[in-house]
Amino acid sequence: MVLITLVSSDEQNFPVERELLKQSGTIETLIVNMNLDDEDTDAAAMPIPLPNVKGDVLEKVIQWMEHHKGDPVKEGDNEDNNAEIVVPQWDDDFFKPAMYGSKHLELTVAASYLDIKNLLTLSCKAISNTFKGKTGPQIREEWGVPNEFTPEEEEAIRKENEWSE
């Protein structure tokens, strides 16, 4: 089993099975550019730096990729299928502890940076699920977003939105 080492922004090393990394468009490109798939290259001696991903987030990303090992890799935007997507139970449980916090958002940023489309889609779907049927103040409270509006501004927005009720 070929292992490739990923290095997080806080200098933590993560040896990861080569097969898993096919899910990441960014890492796949780096592997190709660094010739890490060549038999002559000592992949173990050439770690891949990921300066935009912290260790704790990278650990979660790897955990997600391990669970989804062998899943078909999503290509392109594929927006047409987005509406039908349901977050599987395992993924729901995976996102839950980080939900309503910056950890989940950091995971989403990492999924975007690493170009892991399935993770990005599921993560975004999980975020959008938390908005469903909620009012602005409820979303603010759940996600810890400070209220920047004056009561008058809030009332004005509610009035503007009235037509959709």
């Binding site: 927006e79 987005n82 509406a83 997507i85 910056s102 958002l105 950091e106 989403t108 940023v109 999924a111 975007s112 940076y113 990005l120 889609t121 993560s123 975004c124 779907k125 975020i127 959008s128 699920n129 908005f131 469903k132 049927g133 909620k134 009012t135 602005g136 103040p137 979303i139 603010r140 996600w143 977003v145 920047e148 509006f149 809030e154 927005i157 509610r158 503007e160 939105n161 959709s164 009720e165």
Partner: peptide, 30 residues
């Protein structure tokens, strides 16, 4: 990190999953 610091493709992806009413309500957040 707040929503608005998410990359554009992530924000777009989140909104793709939302119905119109939820989108209007998101205007009340920030």
């Amino acid at each position: 990190l707040n929503f608005l610091e998410l990359p554009q493709n992530a924000i777009k992806c989140i909104f793709d999953f939302m119905d119109y009413k939820s989108i209007l309500r998101i205007r009340e957040v920030a």
